[in-house]
């Protein structure tokens, strides 16, 4: 299968690979898996006092599209507020990376990972999901 140049770029030079301290109360960790292809994706965000995502890291075991989707996702997350991050849709990843239909589930996985990381962060900070959404 032919990957787009953008997928290849993220695959060959993945941004923000690594991990953040899971026990840090300002770090949210999302771990998701794709039933379609057996991929496993870990995505972490670090939120500063102003509610801005100041760092994001990922590690993905899977195909090129899954790696590219999560790599791009971490780039998009940095500098966003938690609520802006929640608004990221997989379709943005699909169009940015020109993912073919058979690889759309990779972008869905990345969106799920973002949501899981944010949910974990909110759980840690003790803010119920609805209340946290109204803060900003």
């Amino acid at each position: 299968m032919a990957y787009s140049n953008k997928v290849l770029d993220h695959y060959n030079n993945p941004r923000n690979v690594g991990s953040l301290d899971k026990s840090d109360p300002n770090v949210g960790t999302g771990m998701v898996g794709a039933p379609e292809c057996g991929d496993v994706m870990k995505l972490q965000i670090k939120v500063n006092g102003a509610g801005i995502i100041e760092d994001a890291k990922f590690k993905t075991f899977g195909c090129g599209s899954a790696i590219a989707s999560s790599s791009l996702a971490t780039e998009m997350l940095k500098g966003k507020t938690v609520d802006e991050a929640l608004a990221i849709r997989n379709t943005e990843l699909v169009s940015e990376l020109s993912l073919p239909p058979v690889k759309i589930h990779c972008s869905v996985l990345a969106e799920d990972a973002i949501k899981a990381a944010i949910a974990d962060y909110k759980k840690k900070t003790g803010a119920p999901a609805e209340a946290a959404a109204q803060v900003h």
Partner: peptide, 11 residues
Amino acid sequence: DVPPELLEEVF
């Protein structure tokens, strides 16, 4: 299929 309860271990 990734068994959801095993994600951590698989990772």
